[in-house]
Design a binder for these strands. Structure first.
Lengths: 193, 193
DNA sequence: ATGTATAATTAACACTGTTAATATATTTTG
DNA sequence: CAAAATATATTAACAGTGTTAATTATACAT
């Protein structure tokens, strides 16, 4: 029956929605089967009729957050012209998203979940993807070689990851202002070619 | 009484030792009060006579691992002359330590524990510290300015952190060989001045 | 309307960290 | 040296966690 599928998808959606709300609000540490189910308006065991386990459910949120982050950055940088300054703006916007939703950061980069290679790789290279057309532009305008752009892309990804890890996970530096200063210096250093 | 103190310290040491063994062996996910106590040869509740809670105990391991990492890197790079190549060697040795003991990496950089500013900062700047005399050397030899060395130091720290995070936590890239290639490129890029 | 398939719930299990009450050593005192 | 007092270690219990089995409620087809 087709109705079965529709209803099943709707139910799944309720649980996924609840999970996403908790992650964005209270954070990863507040995720529990009973907590999710309560917010979805069902008993905790009902969840297991639609998901293999809680990891399976949480895993499904990753893709949604990835898309959300992408849209967030695109909206913030859509009006900017292609080039180095936009690469900086994208990087800062990307960081802004994860600093605003640290629970999402934890899920995407910290939490050990069922290792799906596809998703894992697309999470790791999300910033690369967001920057891609700007890198292409810089190469086309001969601001740097194709080879150099590849290495610099990875450099940018690592720098941003490092800054986020220390700031979100270790409160280092201990103020947002200090982080922005640090970020500015690092971005200028990496993106001066 | 002085004997009291000695005995108390000995007891603490048994639990700390057990915790460190589990962390270096099975990893952070295998840490539990009952598991630690069993390995130490005591009941789980005995632990609470010597530590406020399990976080307090785990926290005490951080300093030891930091020292161990420091000694590991120093031993591997002691014979090298000061300079850029040694900065690379130190970075690679530092990465090697954490890849060998991923449980230690998790504890120092991933796990959310009682936030002690002192320790947190010293963990975040451990690589900086290990490199310091080489940076001083490079500045003295006028290979780069003091200001540039500060920015590059942070750049190196972030790059290494990013590489470790993705590789250890997300298996990206998915082979150690690929990681070494990626690392080599990144280090050469950062340390070419 | 009744029987059957399906979905949702409660009860239970094996874990987790932590605390209170109990049992065991150890030390101090008569 | 024996008894009382103190300190230490252990078991039992509680409130959590994820997960599964058994049970109840619901929807659907005959």
């Amino acid at each position: 029956m087709d109705n079965k599928k529709i209803q099943e998808e709707r139910m799944k959606c309720y649980f996924i929605q609840a999970t996403k709300e908790i992650l964005k609000g209270e954070g990863l540490k507040c995720i529990s089967v009973r907590n999710i189910a309560q917010r979805a308006g069902y008993s905790y065991a009902t969840l297991y009729n639609y998901f293999k386990d809680v990891k399976d459910l949480i895993f499904l949120c990753i893709h949604d957050f990835q898309v959300e982050c992408e849209e967030f950055v695109k909206q913030e940088t859509a009006s900017l012209p292609e080039g180095i300054e936009t690469l900086k703006a994208i990087s800062k916007s990307y960081m802004k998203y994860f600093i605003q939703y640290t629970g999402v950061y934890e899920l995407l980069f910290i939490e050990r979940i069922n290792e799906n290679k596809q998703i894992t790789e697309s999470v790791c290279t999300l910033l690369d993807k967001l920057c891609q057309n700007n890198w292409d532009y810089c190469v086309k305008e001969q601001l740097l070689s194709q080879e150099a752009s590849e290495a610099t892309k990875i450099q940018l990804r690592n720098a941003v990851s490092g800054l986020l890890l220390f700031y979100i996970n270790r409160k280092y530096p201990n103020s947002y202002k200090d982080l922005t200063v640090l970020t500015e210096i690092q971005l200028n250093k990496i993106l001066s070619f």
